[in-house]
Computed example of a mutant assay.
Amino acid sequence: MDLDAYLAERRGEWNRLETLAARRKLSATESDELVLLYQRAATHLSVVRSRTPDPVVLADLSRLVLAGRAAVTRGNRFSLRPVADFVLYRYPAALYRTRRWWATLGILMMVLGAALTWYVAVHPDVIALLLSDGEVQQLVGTDFVGYYSEFQAQNFALQVWTNNALLTAQCLASGVLILPVLYLVGVNLLNTGLTGGVMFEQDAGGTFLTYLAPHGCLELTCLFIGAGVGLRIGWAWISPGPTLSRRESLVAWVREGMVIAIGLVPTLAVAGILEAFVTPSALPAPVRIAIGVIVWLAFLAYAIGRGGWAALETDRNRSR
């Protein structure tokens, strides 16, 4: 084989491969061309090695093939595109598709919680069965407000985040059995309702709302989302619908639940930051409440507004 003629004939392809391999971004056409030139260069290297193993040519061609291989496989490197796709499409779309479950559960729990708080507040005998006078005074005088500043803010935020994430995860994971979700939400409702009832009965209802509203709107919404989606997962095998088997329906909704579980992690982190840094801060009460409500409304706009658009786009792409 005439090595010089062989090199001259293929030099253009090799130069083009080297150019494409050095670029950070390629179009779809250039990516296809890169793969094709890399495969050809690997074949050329094999031919040269078997017929005229010139060490200089082999070294240059081997370097080029390695560069081409690295360029072809570099798509496996970390990219922010999947993160953006999750934040902009998958997570809000999943929230929107399950909105009827978590919104209905949330409204129901808030009504029951308000009713329980009112009942305890107007029935002191119920409080007497659960707490002594000293315990009531300690709760109202120091424990309720002191809870939010007992630890350093960053440590408290981490503790709150961990506890809330664990509770939400339990609601999602136990949803297939239905009843455990209702138990977990019911216990949380009972604790909040009893505490609120005691505070209102002692004329400290304003303090209760001031310290609950800044973080509670978002925090409770996350809990209702976890519980509502958990119930939806459980309902998937009870009533799978006309087109899916029970297994297919359950698997589909478990996947949707996993998306929401991942998305709730940073959402609960925001709620933890509010509870640790905003709720016990020295800001005026209306400002603290306003911050919590604005963050909560922004999340609802993301879940319903952005979620509706993302769900529509996702369905369109699937139908193509």
Results as ranks from 00 to 15, higher is better:
Tyr148Leu: 10
Leu130Gly: 06
Val65Arg: 02
Ala227Arg: 00
Leu182Lys: 01
Leu218Phe: 05
Gly146Phe: 10
Ala157Gly: 09
Gly307Tyr: 01
Ser50Asp: 12
Glu9Phe: 09
Thr73Leu: 14
Gly228Cys: 05
Ala103Tyr: 04
Val187Met: 13
Glu219Val: 08
Thr52Phe: 09
Ala22Met: 12
Thr168Tyr: 01
Val287Ile: 14
Leu179Trp: 13
Ser249Phe: 01
Ala67Ser: 12
Arg232Val: 07
Leu274Glu: 04
Tyr91Leu: 15
Asn188Glu: 11
Phe277His: 09
Asp203Pro: 04
Leu129Tyr: 13
Trp101Met: 12
Leu158Lys: 03
Val57Cys: 10
Ala269Lys: 07
Gly197Lys: 07
Asp125Phe: 12
Val287Gly: 03
His123Pro: 09
Arg306Ser: 13
Leu268Asn: 08
Ile289Val: 13
Ala269Met: 15
Val145Gly: 08
Glu9Thr: 08
Ile262Val: 15
Leu36Arg: 10
Tyr147Met: 10
Tyr6Lys: 05
Gly228Val: 08
Glu33Gly: 02
Asp203Val: 09
Glu256Phe: 00
Leu17Tyr: 05
Val83Arg: 00
Pro266Asn: 05
Phe144Gly: 03
Gly106Arg: 03
Leu274Tyr: 02
Phe156His: 09
Leu7Arg: 06
Gly68His: 00
Asp32Gln: 12
Arg77Trp: 03
Arg90Asp: 15
Ala21Cys: 08
Leu300Arg: 02
Glu13Asp: 15
Ile289Ala: 05
Ser62Arg: 15
Leu244Asn: 08
Gln39Tyr: 06
His123Tyr: 01
Arg318Glu: 12
Arg23Ile: 04
Leu189Asp: 00
Ala173Asn: 04
Ala310Thr: 00
Ala301Ser: 12
Leu177Ala: 11
Glu30Pro: 00
Val111Thr: 14
Gly197Ala: 11
Asn155Met: 08
Gly193Glu: 08
Ala298Thr: 14
Trp102Glu: 02
Ser79Trp: 07
